[in-house]
Simulated assay, not measured.
Amino acid sequence: MPDPRFNGAVDDNDEKSKRNNKRLRNVADTTQRMVDDSRNLNRSGTANLSGTTTPTTVNRTTSAPTSLMSLLTGGNSGQPSLASTIQQLATPIGQFANAMLPAMMQTAATAPATFNQSYSSAPNDQIVLTPQQQQRLAEALAAAQEGGPESTTVDGKDLSKGVHGEREQKVVQLAKAVVDAKIPYSWGGGSLTGPTLGISGPGLGANDNNVNGMDCSGFSRYVTYQSSGVEIPRTSGAQWAASDPVSKDQARPGDLVFPPGTQGSGHVQVYIGNGQIAEQYQSGTTARITPLDPSYEIRRPRGIAA
């Protein structure tokens, strides 16, 4: 005959099991009501935004609740689980990252040296020129230092007429020397002491990291420093901000010239007097002297006396 104590234990276990199942059903019902309320709220909100005020009621008999576990495991639906999908995506992403890592590390290793070479503000920046460029620049600068009409004459016109003082004379001589030396445009190129290797730039400038030269703001910075000892910022926008507007009838050699309405973002020229400017224009060209565009804005770097 079975021990009645065992019967009581079994009854107690059955009763506890029933209570636990009831609690689970209550939790499930409460969770479902929360989901339904959320759906109704979302539908009501969306309807109100579109001008409709009647919310849509969810039919509980036609939509079974989706558990988090079934989403993660796929359940019995035959659909891939969220966990397996994430794992499948992780493999190609990891392969892509591994493939890109060497190039990214090489770029990170070389970029600082290129940037420092092209944008260093030290007065003793190293000038890196081909032998032909060195010879042309040396001859042009020697002619500028000797003075005389050849150092300031362009297309038969002596630009020194109306130029006052040693600084203005030197501006004209330096600009013409760079033009005569056929120093090329190089994006990011140019220092306080002369041309440098550029950096790879957009469009035509993609190969400028192999070109010894100056860009527009590198040229204006070089001429300003060499003629006056005043060091202006490296970029054209910063040069605009570090200068003050000058009327055209008050413009002097060494003033900076900017396209109108740009605040210097994009280009800068150097006024050399007699209605002429000198500039480094774009990749694939060399420094040139052209007439001043009357619509352009003229500004004088701070620190340079009128």
Rank of each mutant, 00 (worst) to 15 (best):
A140W: 00
L159E: 07
T153F: 06
K176R: 11
L192H: 05
T130Q: 07
G198E: 14
G218I: 07
H164T: 10
G201V: 04
S217F: 03
A144T: 15
P195N: 11
S220F: 05
K157Y: 13
N212Q: 14
Q132S: 06
Q135C: 13
G205N: 14
V128R: 07
E168I: 12
V172M: 00
K170Q: 10
T196R: 03
Q134V: 00
A143W: 10
A177D: 00
L204Y: 15
G201P: 07
V163W: 06
D208C: 02
Y222V: 11
L197C: 08
V154H: 09
G213F: 02
N124I: 15
Q126A: 14
E168C: 10
T153V: 09
Q145N: 13
L159F: 02
Q134D: 06
G201I: 04
L197A: 06
S200C: 11
E168R: 05
A181L: 08
G147C: 12
Q145G: 09
Y222H: 01
A140F: 13
T152D: 03
P131Q: 05
G201R: 00
L129V: 01
G190Y: 03
R221P: 00
G165D: 04
K157W: 05
A143K: 08
G156I: 09
V154S: 10
G189V: 12
S160Q: 03
P131W: 01
V178Y: 10
G198H: 03
Q135R: 07
A140E: 09
P149G: 14
I127L: 06
V211G: 04
P184Y: 15
L137I: 07
P195H: 01
I183R: 02
S217H: 06
L129K: 01
A206R: 13
Q133A: 02
A206E: 04
L159Y: 09
A138Y: 03
G203W: 04
V154P: 08
G194V: 06
D208E: 13
A140C: 14
D155N: 12
A140Q: 09
G165Y: 01
G213K: 00
P123M: 04
N209S: 14
R136A: 15
L204R: 10
P123F: 11
S186N: 03
V163C: 01
P149D: 11
L192K: 02
Y222L: 14
I127T: 08
F219A: 06
A181T: 04
Y185C: 05
N210T: 04
I199S: 15
V154C: 08
N207Q: 15
V128M: 12
V171W: 03
G188F: 08
G190Q: 05
L192R: 04
I127N: 09
V172K: 00
P202N: 14
